[in-house]
Lab assay of single mutants.
Amino acid sequence: KKVIATKVLGTVKWFNVRNGYGFINRNDTKEDVFVHQTAIKKNNPRKYLRSVGDGETVEFDVVEGEKGAEAANVTGPGGVPVQGSKYAADR
């Protein structure tokens, strides 16, 4: 997939743990970017499923997906693991 931007910061608008996807609002352009659970590179080690939490600040790359921009290599700011959704089960 073609990389559009790297190391972008954004805020998770919403993320559905059961369906495994959601949207991140970019801090720079204010665009909403699709995020799939497979794009989460550093999950919270205490969580079973990969997820990001609503309102969480994340860092990610933006790539060209089939339906427009989507997030890739999602981590917390500075490459730390994401916090994850409060609806995702703990280990």
Rank of each mutant, 00 (worst) to 15 (best):
F23S: 02
K30G: 14
K42H: 10
V74M: 02
G53L: 09
E70W: 14
I4A: 05
G10M: 00
E31H: 08
V62C: 07
A39F: 06
T29G: 05
G79V: 04
G76L: 07
T6V: 13
Y48R: 12
T38N: 09
Q83N: 14
K47M: 08
I40K: 01
I4V: 10
A88W: 05
V63T: 08
N73Y: 08
A69G: 10
T38Q: 09
K67N: 11
A5D: 15
K47E: 05
R46K: 12
V52Y: 03
F15N: 01
R18L: 11
V33F: 03
E59K: 03
V62A: 03
N27F: 13
V3C: 08
D54G: 15
P81E: 14
Y21Q: 02
P77N: 04
V80P: 04
K30D: 13
G84N: 04
K67P: 05
A39I: 01
K41E: 13
F60Q: 01
K42T: 13
Y48D: 11
S51R: 05
K7N: 13
E64R: 15
A5K: 15
F60L: 07
V80C: 15
T29V: 06
I40R: 01
V12G: 02
A72P: 00
Y87F: 13
F60H: 01
I4T: 08
N19E: 15
E66Y: 13
K67Q: 14
S51A: 06
R46S: 12
V17P: 09
K7D: 11
I40H: 00
D61A: 06
L49A: 06
R18V: 13
E64D: 14
F60I: 04
N19S: 15
L9I: 11
K13L: 07
K1C: 04
K13D: 05
N25L: 14
S85I: 06
V12Q: 01
W14N: 03
V58W: 02
V58L: 10
A5R: 14
G65R: 09
G68C: 06
V82C: 14
K7H: 14
K67D: 06
K2N: 12
G22Q: 00
L49R: 07
G76H: 05
K1Q: 04
Y87C: 08
V33E: 01
V35Q: 01
F34T: 02
T57E: 15
N16K: 03
K7V: 04
V74G: 00
K30N: 15
V58I: 09
G22W: 00
P45K: 14
R91P: 07
D32Y: 03
D54V: 11
E59I: 13
R26C: 07
K30C: 12
G76D: 04
F23Q: 02
A89M: 11
E70I: 12
V62P: 00
A89S: 13
R18P: 04
V80W: 11
E64N: 11
G22M: 01
H36I: 02
Q83H: 10
K30Y: 12
K13A: 09
D54S: 14
V63I: 15
I4K: 08
E59V: 11
H36Q: 03
E70G: 04
L9P: 09
Y21G: 02
Q83T: 12
V63G: 01
G53V: 08
A72S: 12
T57Q: 15
E59N: 04
V52A: 05
K13C: 06
A39H: 06
V33R: 00
V52T: 03
A89F: 15
F23K: 03
P77I: 11
K2H: 06
R46C: 12
K41M: 15
P81W: 12
E59Y: 05
V63D: 02
N16M: 02
T75V: 11
K1N: 10
R91Q: 14
V35P: 01
F23M: 03
N19P: 03
A89T: 10
D90A: 10
P81Y: 14
P81H: 10
K30I: 05
V12R: 00
E31T: 13
L9E: 09
K2V: 06
E66M: 13
Q83V: 09
N27W: 11
K47D: 07
K13M: 07
Y21I: 04
S51M: 05
E70V: 11
Q83I: 09
G10A: 01
D28I: 02
R26A: 03
E70R: 10
E66T: 15
V58R: 00
S85F: 05
Q37F: 12
E70T: 12
N27L: 13
A69I: 14
I24A: 03
R50Y: 07
N43T: 10
V58P: 00
A5F: 15
A72T: 14
A71W: 00
K7C: 09
V82F: 05
V80I: 14
A72N: 13
T38Y: 07
G68L: 06
K67H: 09
N44T: 09
N44W: 07
L49D: 07
T75K: 07
D54F: 13
K86T: 15
I40F: 06
D61R: 03
A71Q: 00
A5W: 04
K67C: 08
A88Y: 06
R50M: 08
D90R: 08
G79K: 08
H36S: 05
K47L: 07
V17G: 06
V17M: 10
N44L: 06
T11S: 09
A89H: 15
F34K: 02
T75Y: 05
V82G: 04
A39W: 03
N44Q: 09
Q83D: 09
D54N: 14
K7Y: 03
D54Y: 12
G10S: 00
E64A: 13
S85L: 06
T57C: 12
F34Y: 10
P77A: 10
V12N: 00
